[in-house]
Amino acid sequence: MIEIFSKNVSGMTEKLSRSTIAIAGCGGIGSNVAVSLVRAGIGKLIIADMDIIEASNLNRQYFFIEEIGKTKVLTLKSRLENINPDCEIISYHKELTRDDVSGIFSGADIMIEAFDKAESKQWLIEEWGFLYPDKPIISGNGLSGCGNFESIKIRQVGNIYFCGDGVTSFEIGLCSARVAIVSNIQANLAIELIMNSK
């Protein structure tokens, strides 16, 4: 484990290894965020998703062609364990509901909102913000289209962080690079919040 993180920023490995992050959704946002967090040295991830990998996911999600038809969450778990076997990965293959915020996600220090539908984003942010107003939730909000990097920003409202351009929706299409940029802004912010915490 020490060798994996020998190039890490000083003090980062120790702090991240003691932290737990939840990721709701393992698609374009979730799969990219999870890989970055495990490579950074996060100690524990709680990941959940109900979907199966489809061909149309491969333009932006961290999966391979031979994995089509497999469950996203278990495939991602296997991938993450192959990066750092010492990272504890708790996985749930299920349709998520509001009750999961006080259930399977209750032990997390930070929530990554990684859903695709705005309806799902809404209930997750509402429930997390209501139950855990002192714990950060980092949402991906507006990552469709391509280019236009200057429009991507972080909007903070208390402990809710909205990453993205805030205006683009999936109907215009999704591009690998832009989804990965926003995902990694979310991952980077989560790491920063942990590093700045006591």
């Binding site: 374009g28 990684a114 859903f115 909000n141 990552l143 809710i160 683009t168 929706s169 999936f170």
Partner: peptide, 10 residues
């Protein structure tokens, strides 16, 4: 009051 619009996509 803060009001944030949520966009689909992920």
């Amino acid at each position: 009051v803060n009001v944030i619009h949520l966009m689909s996509g992920g």
